[in-house]
Design a protein around this nucleic acid. Structure first.
Lengths: 159, 159
DNA sequence: GCCGAGCTACTCGGATAGTTCTTGTCCGAGTCAATGAGG
DNA sequence: CCTCATTGACTCGGACAAGAACTATCCGAGTAGCTCGGC
């Protein structure tokens, strides 16, 4: 019941990409956050497959957001990196053992699964309500308006 | 982001214990659900450590619920078996890299953590609202009133 | 017939290997921009 | 001065090991009930 560390990296990268004026290479995003470049690349590829970011090949290429930041929910990122499968998988325990329920009586999911699924949906709904744009705004509120400007400049400056 | 399979077993065991008239050995619970006895024992020990069930030693011993079934929430079981730590752990990425925020500016948790924590709390609240007694009632509603009676008889019968 | 010590069998509890999944890394295919020559 | 082919370097993308967590298992410590002998 542990979420992949890559989720945190991916979310921060999306927030940073909000401030970028052009495509940003994966290596520079890794340097910005001081994390493993190779491993971050793996997660950025997942975001790319999910259609959240798009890759620009060749020189001066990199990644950029495909949609406006207020249309990318945190849930989108979590599902792209960590998988969209629910955390709980029902193994149909009720159909096993000496008092197994017959399959024809198990058309409706069992109570345990229903409870877990409801909790999972509540979790997803909460993540679906927050967007990358909200997180970027939170930066400004916490560190002062214009807090993203140094990031934009750093990303644009040559290294 | 996958929940331990033992959680499902533990919840079902708690529901079955609702129908039991006395202590039930771990081996019999395993036989009832057709799962590994050794591994189920591990999870029952976790429930025991959490105070959800109590062990009775010696002959005719086993496990029994310590509280009424309407006072044991599904969240209690999940936290006992799978751990109470939140799924998302913030590694304070904002304090790393060339544009790291100074520690004195990070008294409040960052926006990503706040979002994840809120979702985690929504998930927990949902699980906290369902009790073992509700699941037992669901059995009766789905399979007919008195559906738990054969289970009680099977647990009491000698093997 | 009643009591008690001893014993047996059964219970849980924690320490111990095997396996799957996540983490972390690498090199190759593809692509865009810059460059230099030619018209 | 403008156009175009060539070159070059930089980008992503998927395939490849290492480590950790989960899964599964075993045997030892402890306890309650039963048995048998004595009173």
């Amino acid at each position: 019941m542990k979420m992949s560390d890559g989720v945190e990296w991916a979310v921060h990268c999306c927030v940073v990409l909000t401030a970028a004026s052009g495509p940003v290479p994966a290596a520079r995003l890794a340097q910005f956050h001081d994390v493993s470049a190779s491993y971050l690349a793996k997660h950025l590829q997942a975001l790319s497959r999910a259609g959240i970011i798009a890759s620009v090949q060749g020189k001066d290429g990199g990644y950029r957001l495909t949609r406006p930041a207020d249309e990318v929910s945190v849930l989108d990122i979590v599902e792209a990196v960590d998988g969209a499968r629910p955390a709980f998988v029902c193994t149909e325990i009720r159909q096993r053992g000496p008092l197994a329920s017959p399959p024809e009586a198990c058309t409706r999911p069992c109570g345990v699964l229903r409870t877990m699924a409801a909790a999972d949906e509540a979790w997803r709904a909460s993540l679906r309500a927050t967007f990358v744009a909200d997180l970027a705004r939170g930066m400004d509120e916490q560190y002062g308006v214009g807090a993203m400007e140094p990031a934009r400049a750093w990303l644009a400056a040559p290294h």
